[in-house]
Nucleic acid binder design. Structure first.
Lengths: 196, 196, 196, 196
DNA sequence: TTCTAAACGAGACGGTACGTCGGGTCTTATA
DNA sequence: TATAAGACCCGACGTACCGTCTCGTTTAGAA
């Protein structure tokens, strides 16, 4: 399936790479994930399809890189010492990621693609999901150590109780959580975890 | 863009309809949602593509009907008087729906399709999601009236706390909830809601 | 290929027959032979496709009947005693048949259809071509008997020399013969035949 | 309706082109013009339909090129100094073209297609008909200059008197001219033109 | 005059082919 | 040797008609 000889990254055109990532995000925003075809991305970026397939295995992979590029610098998990406040910050950011251009359509598209593309799924887990889940869990761990959560709190379940409803709404295309609703959600889950 | 004349349902071939629904589910199971093309469904069902497009606007619509056909008779929301037990029953059924052939692949495919297809999205809401959400909510309502939940319990949030984590796992392709884990989840959410 | 039981002509609906013939000619004129589909003819005539296929084996057969209906009463081969004049009359009529609505497009279409449809070809020969060729030959025969042509004139060749150029222009879609040009053509052929 | 960008002929695959032309002629011979569909040609040639539509607007255009390829090298209008003999040679070749595989079915099909397809008609005129008509006329011109025909001979009419009957027989699907009959035809037309 | 078998309108059906689109691979020329 | 350009094979799309086949509903000839 793959080429015999992998390309030499040293000779890669950074100019093309940036153009492709930008074109991919733009097209996702303008026409939606499904119509942002590799063909269209190549045309928009002024790039050959071959160049795209040389460096990425699929459209999803391009957008994963594009999103990661954009998000990586903006969102370490906050730690102000107030767990609920930090969760509000973070969860609102997730809702924004799921719903707001330019990243929203791209991320939503990736979430559909991983249902069919195992390779992409692995990549998304590795570079995107797992680190963020770990970060969230680590923040909860700190909160527990500082007494904001009981010692026996089920932190893995906690993560899913916090984020599950957000993804539930997205997957079923219900209206996204408002900040107020997120606050309510956090209160409930904290209570579920046995917080004071 | 649309048809001139809508077809006459009275003259519809039930034989073809059944063959199409069965072929669609089978192909979804065998080759996955993406490869279950309209072309392949038509061939498998021994039916012309025109017949498919006469009655359904898209592949997703076929599978929605197929799933609804299969599920409608098996799952009214149970009411044994024990809310937690009923939730366990129901939520395990949802996990099964999301993961187990022949319906799993089809339902998963539909959940991706509604991200792009507004008409299908509306149909899925109307015939599938909303009735089931309402049924769940109604069951919680009964539980509240019977004192299993406090009078001020936020039932809408409750639904999302129960089902959110299930869809979260599915959307991110994490391993599905086990029955034990579901029990734990239910315990936590009951506590979040302030159950005794 | 054919039905078990042939239909009973006594019970045939004359109303439908007329509507079909008219619709076929109209559609041929409006959209051309190729777009005058059986489907469109049925719709235009307010008639079921089954009714068409019950009485005609193909679109070409409909139009053959339509043309024959229209032409049969207007054109016996003229005989004024002046062969050249009669030929002018007749050949101008042929050019008109080949070029002028409502019969032109239909006849042109039939001439293409007989290249592929042997049954239609036989029908066209029997009901249309052969009688007219015979009539022309008969007229030439009379002319020969009356001394307008030599006794040894090759009448079969004559027919083809008269009509051949007309069909040549039609088949190659060159501009049709003008009346003047027809006169010249007749003069030449008369000379070829050895007329005084 | 038309394409955005015309393809670049320099990059064209000669291999595919040859395969397509050969497949088109073969299928025409084997199954007839009507059944030689673009789909079948593509399959036979081992080529995608896209490749066909990239370079030809229609099936007729393919066969026009195929025929022209095959005929161009074999038939300049002969000039042995004996007009009647040259006409015999040439007209027999035309009868063969109209009746004999592999070119006969293809040429016959094109002659029907040009009745509906104006673009193809223009192409056929330009690359096939007009040059050959001109060549015939030029040969007659030479004959006239050399005294084989009178100075005032109507050469345009002559061409149509020679070839008209051939096309007449073809269009009406009468049996093709035999060489002997062609000789008789030529004699008559020469006399019509006033040859000595 | 009534009955009844047919022809009828409507149009759904299984097919074949259409012309288009995009995927992923491969070739050619340029820098 | 990576690139832009883009032709290539392939598979699927959604549409158009084909000719066949039910369906009720007229309707016209025999009873």
């Amino acid at each position: 399936m793959s080429n015999g000889v992998p390309p030499n990254p040293a000779r890669r055109s950074e100019r093309s790479r940036q153009a492709i990532l930008a074109a991919a995000l733009d097209l996702c925003t303008e026409k939606g994930y499904a119509r942002a075809t590799v063909e269209a991305i190549a045309a928009r970026a002024g790039v050959s399809k071959k160049t795209i397939y040389r460096w990425w295995p699929s459209k999803g992979a391009i957008l994963l890189e594009a999103i990661n590029n954009a998000v990586v610098m903006t969102t370490p998990f906050p730690d102000t010492g107030d767990l609920a406040a930090d969760l509000r910050t973070q969860m609102n950011a997730v809702v924004r990621l799921l719903t707001t251009p330019p990243l929203g359509p791209a991320y939503a598209g990736i979430l559909t693609e991983i249902q069919y593309d195992d390779e992409l799924c692995r990549a998304v887990q590795d570079v995107f999901i797992t680190p963020r889940v770990q970060a969230a869990r680590a923040r909860l761990c700190i909160a527990r150590d500082q007494g904001e959560l009981p010692l026996d709190a089920d932190l893995d379940l906690a993560v899913e109780l916090f984020y599950g409803p957000l993804y539930y709404r997205h997957t079923l295309r219900r209206p996204p959580y408002s900040p107020e609703r997120i606050a309510t959600l956090i209160d409930h889950v904290m209570r579920a975890l046995g917080a004071s």
